[in-house]
Design a protein around this nucleic acid. Structure first.
Lengths: 271, 271
DNA sequence: GGTTGTGAACATATTCACAGCA
DNA sequence: TGCTGTGAATATGTTCACAACC
C-alpha cells in the first residue's frame, strides 16, 4: 500500500509494526468516545471490544508504544489518548489539500472527522475553471494553476487526490514536485511515485470485489466442494509435485461449461 | 477487517489467501486495460509493474488460482481476465444498495466503476423524507421505510453504508435482518454484526492518520533517534527483561516536555 | 533463451498462556 | 485477585532462487 519507505534495515527494532500503526487510529477513536463520557480508565478487554479487535492484540500493540497501563487496573484513558495522538503525529496539525472537487471531493471536504483530529483543509483545488471561486464546505474552490503556490504557502505535505483516474498520475507529480510527500489516492489508478513518498489508496471497486469474492463463497458452499472433487484432492499440504489444479485439457472445458449470465464474458481461449 | 468468517479450520488448504484475494482486483484492472489495448499476452514482470506489485508475488498469487500461464511466453490476457473475474464472482452481477445519500452516497452512486464490473446499484436509500423521490445519478432516492422490501425484491446481498456514524449500526442491523450478508461501511464506526456477515470498512480519517504517522517519522528522522537515546537502548531483540521504554518517573516528564503546538492537548496525567 | 510455478527461507502478524506486578 | 506485558508458538505473507518447461 505504502509505496516508498520499504527497504529499511528492519533490524534494530526501531519502529512500530505497520499493522499496529494501522490500528492506532481505531483505538484512538474508541478512547476519545470514552473520554467524552468521562470514563477514567479502561481494561484491554473493554477497549478491545470497543475497537473491534481482540485484547491480546491490543495489549501487544500498546506494548510497542511503551508500558502505559497499570496491572490489575487497566489504562488511563486521557493519558492513552495523548500518547497515541502523539505517536500518530496528531498533536501538530496537518494542512491538506484536496484535488478534484467533484462529488467525492465535496464529500471529503464536508467530512467532519477531517477537521477535528489534527487535519485542516488548506485548500480545495479543481481543474475546471467553472468551479473556481465556487464555495464548497465553506471554502472557495481554487484553480489547478494555483496548486504549487498553495502547497508552498501552506507547507502542505499531505495531498488527497479525488480526481478522475486519468488525471491522478499527473496531479500526483505536481503535488510531489511542489513538496507533498504523502498522498491519499481515491482515483482507481496505481500511482507511480519516487522513493520516499507514501501513497495510500482507497478504492471502492476493490472493496466491493473482495466482498463479492466472499459472497460467492457463501453461496457456493457445497457446490465449491463438489467442484473440488472433480480435480483431485487439491494437494493437501503440498506433498505431490503440485499438478495444476485444472489440467490443460480441462481448462477450456471448464470455461466453456460456465456460460456467464451476462453477455460480456470473453469467449476467447488461449491458443 | 472482515468481521465474520474467521475461525475456519484453515487446514485442508481450501481457499485463496486473503492477501491474494485483495490483489486480484488490482490485477484485473491492469489486465482489463491491456485487453482494451488488444495486448494478447503479458509476462508476470510487465503485469506486476502495471499493478504496482513485484513479479514473484504476482506469480505466487496466480499459482493459487491454477496454472494459467505458459512458460517462456507469459499469460493470455483475455483468459486471465476471465479466470480472475470468475474467481472474484464477477461473472454474475451483484445488486447493491447504497444507504445514506449525502455527499458521499451521491459520489458513490455516480461512481462509474460501480456499474461496470459486476455491480449494479439496485437502489439509493435515505432516511430524510425530503430526499425521497429526488433523482441522484439517474435514480430516484427511496425512503428508509422501503429498505426491507427493496432488499428482498432485488435479492440484494451487498449493502453500502454511507450514513453518519450514529445511524450506521442500526442501518446495518436492518440490512442484515433483510438478508444482506456483506457490508461496505463508510461510516466511522465499528459495526458489530453476527457471524457469517462480512464487513469491510473504508475510513478516511484512519488513512490520513496513518499517513501522518509516516510523515512525522520523515520529519523527525534524526530527532527521533536522539529521543531514543534518552530512554535507553530500546532493548535490541528483547534480551533484557524488557524494561518499560519510558520509566514511570520519565513519563510525566516526557509528556510535559512536549507541549503540543495546538491548545487541545489534554494536560491530564494519570494519578 | 525466456518465463512460469513453486519449494524453501525469511519476515511479519496473531494468538496463546502465564509470569509479574498493583 | 485482576489485569498488564511479553516470551514462545503459530499462522500468514513475502521474497528468493531455480528446476521445469515452452
Amino acid at each position: 500500500m505504502a509505496t516508498g519507505r520499504t527497504h529499511r534495515p528492519a533490524t534494530r527494532s526501531r519502529g512500530i509494526p505497520e499493522a499496529t500503526v494501522a490500528r492506532l487510529p481505531l483505538y484512538l477513536r474508541a478512547l476519545t468516545a470514552l473520554s467524552e463520557r468521562s470514563v477514567p480508565t479502561v481494561s484491554s478487554e473493554e477497549l478491545a471490544t470497543a475497537a473491534g479487535v481482540n485484547s491480546a492484540k491490543l495489549r501487544k500493540d500498546f506494548s510497542y508504544l511503551g508500558s502505559y497501563g497499570t496491572r490489575g487496573v487497566g489504562y488511563d484513558v486521557e493519558y492513552l489518548v495523548y500518547q497515541i495522538s502523539r505517536e500518530l503525529g496528531l498533536t501538530q496539525d496537518w494542512p491538506v489539500v484536496i484535488v478534484g472537487i467533484g462529488n467525492l471531493g465535496a464529500a471529503l471536504a464536508n467530512y467532519g472527522g477531517f477537521a477535528s483530529r489534527g487535519f485542516r483543509v488548506a485548500a480545495l483545488i479543481d481543474a475546471d475553471p467553472a468551479m473556481a471561486g465556487k464555495m464548497v464546505a465553506g471554502m472557495p474552490v481554487r484553480h489547478t494553476d494555483e496548486l504549487e503556490a498553495i502547497i508552498e504557502d501552506n507547507g502542505v505535505s499531505i495531498g488527497v487526490i479525488a480526481t478522475p483516474a486519468g488525471a491522478a498520475q499527473q496531479v500526483s507529480e505536481r503535488l510531489i514536485a511542489a513538496g507533498v510527500t504523502s498522498i491519499l489516492n481515491f482515483a482507481p489508478t496505481v500511482l507511480s511515485v519516487p522513493e520516499g513518498v507514501d501513497v495510500r489508496k482507497v478504492d471502492l471497486s476493490i472493496e466491493l470485489q473482495i466482498l463479492a469474492f466472499h459472497e460467492q463463497r457463501k453461496a457456493g458452499e457445497g457446490a465449491a466442494a463438489a467442484a473440488e472433487e472433480l480435480t483431485g484432492p487439491a494437494t493437501g499440504t503440498g506433498a505431490a509435485p503440485a499438478a495444476a489444479v485444472v489440467p490443460p485439457a480441462g481448462r477450456a472445458a471448464a470455461a466453456a461449461r460456465k456460460g456467464g449470465p451476462e453477455g460480456d464474458v470473453p469467449a476467447v481461449m488461449p491458443a
